[in-house]
Design a protein around this nucleic acid. Sequence first.
DNA 1: ACCAATTGTGGACTTAATATCCACCAATTG
DNA 2: CAATTGGTGGATATTAAGTCCACAATTGGT
Lengths: 306, 306
Amino acid sequence: MAGQHTIPESLSGISAFVAVVQAGSFTLAAERLGVTKSAVGKSINRLEERLGVKLLRRTTRRLQLTFDGEAYFQACASALDKIAEAEAQITPYDQVLRGRVHIDMPMAFGKRVLLPLLLELAAPHPELALTMSFNDATVDLMRDEADLAIRFGQLPDSSHLVARKLASQERLICGSPGYLQAHGVPMSLSDLNGHRCIVGTTHGPPQQWTVQERGHVMRITPPATHQLSDGESIVETALAGFGLCQMPVSLLRSHIEQGRLVPVLQAHSGVLVDVHMLWVRQATLAPRIRYVIDQLMAYAERGALG
Amino acid sequence: MAGQHTIPESLSGISAFVAVVQAGSFTLAAERLGVTKSAVGKSINRLEERLGVKLLRRTTRRLQLTFDGEAYFQACASALDKIAEAEAQITPYDQVLRGRVHIDMPMAFGKRVLLPLLLELAAPHPELALTMSFNDATVDLMRDEADLAIRFGQLPDSSHLVARKLASQERLICGSPGYLQAHGVPMSLSDLNGHRCIVGTTHGPPQQWTVQERGHVMRITPPATHQLSDGESIVETALAGFGLCQMPVSLLRSHIEQGRLVPVLQAHSGVLVDVHMLWVRQATLAPRIRYVIDQLMAYAERGALG
DNA sequence: ACCAATTGTGGACTTAATATCCACCAATTG
DNA sequence: CAATTGGTGGATATTAAGTCCACAATTGGT
């Protein structure tokens, strides 16, 4: 975002300078930094020369900041402070990641897409244990129930949650060839009223479908022949020829490729729904959780969740 | 003030890291930093190794910050920004200081004490010209009248002025031997009522004297036989035997040492008055002014203004 | 008032960090 | 499918930084 002007010419000497001011003497500063006083002196000389001003007035017994030194010190000290704080917050990955991470996922997407990836990322760390729960409830406050949640669609925006987008999924409306032969292929959204539709339940996958008409995204309520609380079962039901369903493309792709399901109303689908990863905002996240987050982000970047 | 925890282990690699994130690629960052991409890569590897976490996910074509990298970058970028800003504010002393600096000083103190020092500090810089004006007015708003003012006593606290203490001066009450022989030596503060006193004027040196009684500092108004607007003339008048005066010790020392003036009421004097240097707060002070400030502070530190 | 201790400086040398140069691999693009 | 672009890694070179002295200056103790 910002240009390159935000990078100082060099940072060498700054540590020494701040240390000296804080210590009040070259000798003590040198001790704290674990170098000789000579080294400290030269560092500061170099810094002063680079900046073109004197920073410290040295009178053998007492150190005093010059006019410029004062201002420069204020800036540097608080800057270093900030960096030190950031470094302190970083808990290095243990050589061995250990412990348990609980991930809560949508039923179908979780089993089909995420589960193999999670097993793969955990494999190199024998002491890393995973708890994977499958849950299609759109709202899950994960009160100590999970470390990580993956959710489709719009998010409950609460300030104590962190959300990261993993991918965008297209939702498709489709039905089995047998069903479409028997009931006809819908050509417009209003045609849906003559169809059998398989939808979710109140606390499970959405009961409404998201579609677009001439670029406008809208939600419609199709005639709900069957209601199911489990996304995977919805697909199964559609496969068995009991009606149309709208589901993320990742759950349908293999079936479509093998001709067991046929997309319909393609002009009205193509609406993207985001997949997010959520976790509770906290000062320091356990390394094992950070690891899982990072790896999932890496998979997402590679398009493995598409 | 603060401990040594405020200094990060090392700053090396941080510039490179921030540059890479801002540039969005190793190659572009390397170009901006004026080094090879290899160097940048290694810098960041070292940094990651030191911190024990990966900061960047490198996928050959696209860079992405890791969880830790994100947090670390925020801290580092704003820290470097602050340092860069501080460095930008520093105008290096020109090799040759040039221009004019106007210093306004108390009459007597300025002529006796400051003038030689100012001439001395200006000597190495042939192109540095000084304007020195002498003024005993206690309040001087120096509206473009001077770059620097030196003042005794309490300050007009205005937020757009910067004040730096140069020294503490003792004020002594004294009279000439002749006067004291004629009028007697005062032994208590109340004795002053029977004496002839030489004081300042409303817009010149103080009309009141500052004394202490059993540790309490108080201001008294002595019977003002003569009023003079010029501190130096006050001393002259006392020397001539016309009464007692209270003046800073630096203006009296030589006279006392030579026996031309004798301190009285020593138990009640010894009240310190601070000497301050004042200038108008501004973002960037001209180097020549900063130089004069710094040098005067240096003299003060050495006790040359005592 | 002096001696001793402490503190910053500077020069010659040494060490260690860091950059370069090159070849290589991986991913994208026309 | 070459050609181009972007990151990595090893061997080598270079430069930056630190050490180790001896020294000068200042101060505190007795």
